[in-house]
């Protein structure tokens, strides 16, 4: 008993911090999502009206569609790229250290700077990449005008920004596989592709699931890439869920629906996470290291 009273003051700062920055705001957002609220008017209780409003808003559904597209294409493409690069690095690439720095660099770049860079590189009029694409006779990315091009651009940008994360997880996991296993597999008659399919992939399984889980959640929350690149335009056509939320809250001052959107995002992320944690458990139990 005495122990606890002695310990509490030391733990209290952490508890207070968590309570004040996470728990209380979350409950406030729940409360808010059940009320209609804006500047200059007192909140009135509306039940689940905000949720219904958001879920039936065509703008939200478009934003959700865009988000899902980005999650599906960007994350899986990124996984394939990251895996390919991890295997390339592990196979004994020359100048590995220099290349490693080059590959990891985007992670050190602030998103704002990255977007500014990309906007310049891909500028429809003066961008060097645009110039190169035209010179090669390829269609240019008219991202400031054509919504589908803008989405492609956003997808590429988010892959570029997050590839280091996926890569480093997979590379570390690949390095943890003992060399002997590949030698044993070679003697057992495995050609390189057999070794990849029957040794590498199963042993990378848990790392792949972890990388995917994190990236699904990050990608679902995507905001800065879109906001800085297109601000959801032209005509709200490239909005994603987080941008929709921002617009509701700060352009339309509809705090109730913004709060509801926030909770919809949290629930969707939790759903993704639960699914993958479940998968991961099953795999780990299956491997029983």
């Amino acid at each position: 008993m005495n122990k606890i009273t002695e310990v509490v003051p030391f733990l209290a700062p952490v508890q207070i911090l968590i309570l004040s920055v996470i728990v209380i705001p979350s409950f406030y957002v729940v409360w808010l999502s059940l009320h209609a609220s804006s500047f200059g008017q007192s909140a009135t209780f509306v039940g689940l009206q905000n949720y219904i409003k958001v879920l039936t808003d065509p703008a939200f559904l478009l934003a959700l569609g865009n988000t899902v597209l980005i999650v599906i294409f960007a994350v899986h493409l990124e996984l394939a790229l990251g895996l390919g690069m991890a295997l390339l690095f592990a196979s004994g690439l020359p100048c590995r250290r220099v290349l490693l720095v080059a590959v990891l660099a985007p992670y050190a770049v602030s998103e704002v700077i990255a977007v500014a860079m990309w906007r310049f590189l891909f500028d429809p009029d003066v961008g060097p990449v645009t110039a190169m694409l035209t010179w090669l006779g390829l269609p240019m990315l008219d991202w400031s005008f054509e919504p589908s091009h803008a989405l492609i651009m956003i997808g590429l940008l988010t892959i570029w920004l997050h590839l280091p994360f996926t890569f480093i997880i997979l590379y570390a996991a690949r390095l943890a596989i003992p060399k002997d296993l590949y030698e044993a597999a070679r003697i057992d008659g495995a050609k390189p592709f057999d070794a990849f399919r029957r040794v590498t992939i199963p042993l990378l399984g848990p790392a792949i699931v972890v990388a995917l889980l994190f990236r699904y959640i990050f990608a679902f929350r995507i905001f800065s890439e879109v906001w800085l690149m297109t601000q959801g335009g032209p005509a709200r056509s490239t909005e994603v869920v987080a941008v929709y939320l921002y617009q509701e809250a700060f352009s339309f001052n509809a705090f109730g629906t913004a709060a509801a959107t926030a909770w919809i995002m949290v629930l969707a992320s939790l759903l993704l996470a639960t699914g993958y944690v479940f998968l991961l458990r099953k795999q780990v139990a299956g491997n029983a290291h």
Binding site: P178, D180, L181, A184, V199, L203, G286
Partner: peptide, 8 residues
């Protein structure tokens, strides 16, 4: 020496 069994 390390046996090199496939753990999965």
């Amino acid at each position: 020496q390390s046996y090199a069994l496939y753990p999965h």
